[in-house]
Simulated assay, not measured.
Amino acid sequence: MKLNPFEKKLVQHPLRFWLQNHIEAPLLTSMMPKPHPDIRQALEIGCGFGNGIQLIRDHFGAEHVTAVDLDPEMIAAAKARWQESPHGLKQLDFTVADATSLPFADSQFDVVFNFAVFHHIPDWQAAIAEVARVLKPNGYFVVEDLYRAAICNPLSRKLFEHPQQNRFNHQEWLSGMRQAGFNILCDRNLFNLSGMVLAQKSLA
């Protein structure tokens, strides 16, 4: 499901990026094993206006980032933003894609990132299965997302457009990841409103 106009304004606000850069990304990187793994190929699902690409490069040290989004407007905006940056579009790819049917080969990426995107996906279980497919064995899935209580309430329904059926809480999210073949390495749950998870694809 695409973002509505209000949420598009919200996610591109400078305060949102400040929070991502100074609060969320350091918390996520603190969950990674030490020393940090070498990330040659990273995938961001739901790139929006391109904020996540900078986080993936600056905080996780990814060499090459592939960014996908369901909304062509978002892909165009992210691509334009990075085209105007000092680094340009070097080591970046942009693709319009559905998270439940990713146009990539099996075992292609070292790490996949979800920065609060899967609560927009009606069939989030299918999207997790796709992440498992495109990740290399022992690859990492870095997650932060919103849970049922945060999006299935009167205020959220008034401001945003989120799927209201087949939503998840923290334990249901962890269960879905385990069913897709992930081992949970670290997880944090904020009052079942949102959470962070680091998972690793099993070898089997």
Rank of each mutant, 00 (worst) to 15 (best):
S30A: 15
W82K: 12
I39T: 12
F6K: 02
A25W: 08
E63M: 10
N138I: 12
D38R: 15
E130H: 04
P154W: 01
G52D: 03
A78G: 14
H170M: 08
M32Y: 03
V111C: 11
F141G: 00
L198I: 01
G88Y: 09
H22E: 15
Q125L: 10
H119A: 09
A204W: 09
S30M: 13
A97R: 11
L198Y: 00
G52F: 10
R167V: 02
N183Y: 09
P33Q: 05
N192K: 04
E73A: 06
Q83L: 06
F60W: 04
V96K: 01
L27A: 13
T29F: 11
S194I: 04
M177I: 10
V11F: 07
L19K: 06
K79Y: 12
N192I: 03
Q41P: 08
Y147H: 08
K34A: 10
G195E: 05
E24R: 14
N153I: 08
D58W: 08
W82G: 06
N166F: 09
N51M: 03
F141V: 01
M31F: 01
H22L: 15
G61C: 11
I128C: 05
A97W: 01
L155S: 02
E24I: 15
L203A: 14
F94R: 10
R157P: 11
L70Y: 11
R57M: 12
